[in-house]
Amino acid sequence: MNSTEMSAAPRRMSGEQRRDQILKAALGAFAAGGYAGTSTDQVARAAGVSQPYVVRLFGSKQELFAQVYEHASKRVIDALAAVPAGPDAKHEMGEAYVRLLADRDLLLVIMHGFIAGADPKVGHIARFTLAEAFRLHRERTGASADDARMFVAHGMLINVLMASGAPLHLGEDPDLDALTECTFGAAMSDVAALAAGA
């Protein structure tokens, strides 16, 4: 084999790269099927690895989902934490959350995590994420507890509307239209485009 053939040969993935590949595949699989409806075999096929390899790395479906959920929740918290404190923080935190809508799988996994919250580890992550979003909003904006509660509640409403496909079904029900439009406001056209591309 000459040097050109050797450099063209696929590089072997490190264990960390393979783990990341499986977590990414698991995010899509759990987003589509939820915790109960997704098997480690489905995740393995999506990642292009064997099912025993997934089990060897993560131990169980329960642990795999917990790690996917923790990663998804961390992305939300990191996006909010990146906003500096100040007079524009309230607007910027809202914008940071709306940017996350581009990854529908992320938001669906967050929703599935609340459903699977009876699992102690997943429940702990879900509670921490809610509390941290609340704390960060108060810290960055100087807002009251009630304002921070409304921010977290609004984020949950956004998740539910996106998960149910409401922006794609405008015209189906005038009350749902009104709820969707007042939730997204000026970002409605951007949100509809994101939902259509999902």
Rank of each mutant, 00 (worst) to 15 (best):
79 A>K: 07
79 A>L: 07
79 A>Q: 05
79 A>T: 08
79 A>R: 03
80 L>H: 13
80 L>R: 09
80 L>V: 04
80 L>G: 07
80 L>W: 09
81 A>L: 10
81 A>T: 09
81 A>I: 00
81 A>D: 15
82 A>R: 04
82 A>K: 03
82 A>M: 06
82 A>I: 01
82 A>F: 03
83 V>E: 00
83 V>S: 02
83 V>C: 03
83 V>G: 00
83 V>H: 01
84 P>T: 07
84 P>M: 02
84 P>A: 09
84 P>C: 02
84 P>H: 07
84 P>S: 14
84 P>Y: 04
85 A>L: 06
85 A>W: 05
85 A>Q: 06
85 A>G: 08
85 A>I: 01
86 G>N: 08
86 G>V: 02
86 G>C: 06
86 G>P: 08
86 G>D: 06
86 G>T: 02
86 G>Q: 05
86 G>Y: 00
86 G>F: 01
87 P>T: 05
87 P>S: 12
87 P>M: 08
87 P>V: 02
87 P>K: 11
88 D>N: 06
89 A>W: 00
89 A>Y: 01
90 K>A: 15
90 K>R: 15
90 K>T: 13
91 H>F: 13
91 H>K: 15
91 H>W: 11
91 H>S: 13
91 H>Q: 14
92 E>D: 15
92 E>P: 00
92 E>V: 00
93 M>F: 03
93 M>P: 04
93 M>V: 01
93 M>K: 04
93 M>T: 03
93 M>S: 11
93 M>Q: 09
94 G>M: 11
94 G>W: 09
94 G>T: 06
95 E>Q: 14
95 E>M: 07
95 E>G: 01
95 E>S: 10
96 A>T: 05
96 A>L: 03
96 A>C: 05
96 A>G: 01
96 A>E: 07
97 Y>T: 08
97 Y>N: 07
97 Y>C: 06
97 Y>M: 14
97 Y>V: 14
97 Y>R: 03
97 Y>E: 11
98 V>C: 04
98 V>M: 14
98 V>Y: 13
98 V>E: 14
98 V>N: 06
99 R>L: 12
99 R>P: 06
99 R>S: 11
99 R>T: 10
99 R>A: 15
99 R>C: 09
100 L>F: 12
100 L>G: 05
100 L>M: 09
100 L>I: 06
100 L>P: 06
100 L>E: 05
101 L>C: 11
101 L>H: 12
101 L>G: 04
101 L>T: 13
101 L>E: 10
102 A>P: 08
102 A>M: 10
102 A>G: 15
102 A>Y: 10
103 D>R: 03
103 D>M: 08
104 R>M: 11
104 R>F: 12
104 R>S: 14
104 R>A: 15
105 D>F: 01
105 D>S: 11
106 L>F: 09
106 L>T: 09
106 L>I: 07
106 L>H: 12
107 L>Q: 10
107 L>K: 03
107 L>S: 02
107 L>I: 14
107 L>A: 05
107 L>V: 12
107 L>T: 05
108 L>H: 13
108 L>Y: 08
108 L>M: 15
108 L>D: 13
108 L>G: 03
108 L>Q: 14
109 V>H: 09
109 V>L: 04
109 V>R: 05
109 V>K: 03
109 V>Y: 10
110 I>A: 11
110 I>P: 05
110 I>S: 07
110 I>N: 08
111 M>G: 12
111 M>T: 13
